[in-house]
């Protein structure tokens, strides 16, 4: 490791201050090699993050799934577990990662209905919760320009997918503000269609996760676009 690597890391960590920071910024302006190095660091961060996020689309192992279900039902809660104050939280992503429960037998129909509600009706449609509102209001707009990995309005896209020889592009999204519920939008032309974003009765919201049957079914045979290809696609939108 070089002195410059050390300095760059301190800069990226935000720990350069005062004169050291001014000196670094000045050098950055004058030294194209340093600027290139910083750019490459950021590119590599994106490449690494995207690679590691692949596991998001992999179903939980059977053992882990069983444990999670037990925890969710409260069977593993120790009597000494601390109870925190504050609003109730729902582990939203679980609905997508666990096997489809009874409520999901009509998931395809529900998704179609939801897509209609979210994209086909005026904004005064009775949207039930924050996650759904976010999805209806923002996702279709953000899908036109927000690159995967970036976050805007609490929404992030975890990947864009396409089949060879087809023009349709699908983008998996997560809503950070609502504890990462997920969904899928697809476009073949100008407009995005919400393909999968389900909710569970009697819960505030519990949309499909990135491995839900609906999302997975739509992604079969599709390949993840590289950041470069995705940027080209978004530039054309």
């Amino acid at each position: 490791m070089t002195i410059m690597d050390d300095l760059i890391e301190r800069y990226l960590a935000g720990s350069l201050e005062g004169d050291a920071l001014k000196d670094f910024e000045k050098r950055r302006e004058e030294d194209p090699v340093l600027e290139e190095r910083l750019l490459r660091c950021r590119e590599m961060e994106s490449v690494i993050r995207n690679a590691a996020q692949e596991i998001d689309a992999v179903p939980l192992s059977a053992d882990l799934q069983a444990l999670v279900q037990k925890v969710e039902r409260g069977k593993h809660i120790a009597v000494t577990a601390p109870v925190r104050s504050g609003g109730a939280k729902v582990s939203n992503w679980l609905a997508g990662l666990l096997p489809p429960p009874v409520w999901a037998t009509g998931a395809a129909l529900a998704a179609s209905a939801l897509a209609f509600v979210l994209f086909g009706l005026p904004s005064k449609a009775p949207l039930k919760n924050e996650a759904i509102v976010l999805a209806g209001a923002n996702v279709s707009a953000l899908a036109d320009y927000l690159p995967s990995g970036a976050v805007e309005d609490g929404v992030t896209f975890t990947g864009s997918f396409q089949r060879d020889g087809e023009t349709i592009i699908c983008r998996v999204f997560q809503i950070k503000a609502a504890d990462t519920p997920s969904g899928l939008v697809c476009a073949d032309g100008a407009d995005w269609t919400l393909v999968a974003f389900t909710e569970r009765p009697k819960q505030a919201y519990s949309p499909a996760g990135t491995r839900s049957d609906l999302i997975e079914a739509h992604l079969v045979g599709m390949a993840r676009l590289s950041p470069t290809d995705e940027a080209v696609f978004l530039a054309k939108r």
């Binding site: 999670v68 925890v71 969710e72 809660i77 577990a81 109870v83 925190r84 504050g86």
Partner: peptide, 22 residues
């Protein structure tokens, strides 16, 4: 489900990414 348990469950996606990277 107690909030504490919900907090643990909500961490699982990040724990999986951490574990996968390791």
């Amino acid at each position: 489900m107690q909030d504490w348990t919900a907090d643990i469950l909500d961490c699982i996606p990040r724990l999986r990414r951490f574990a996968y990277t390791l």
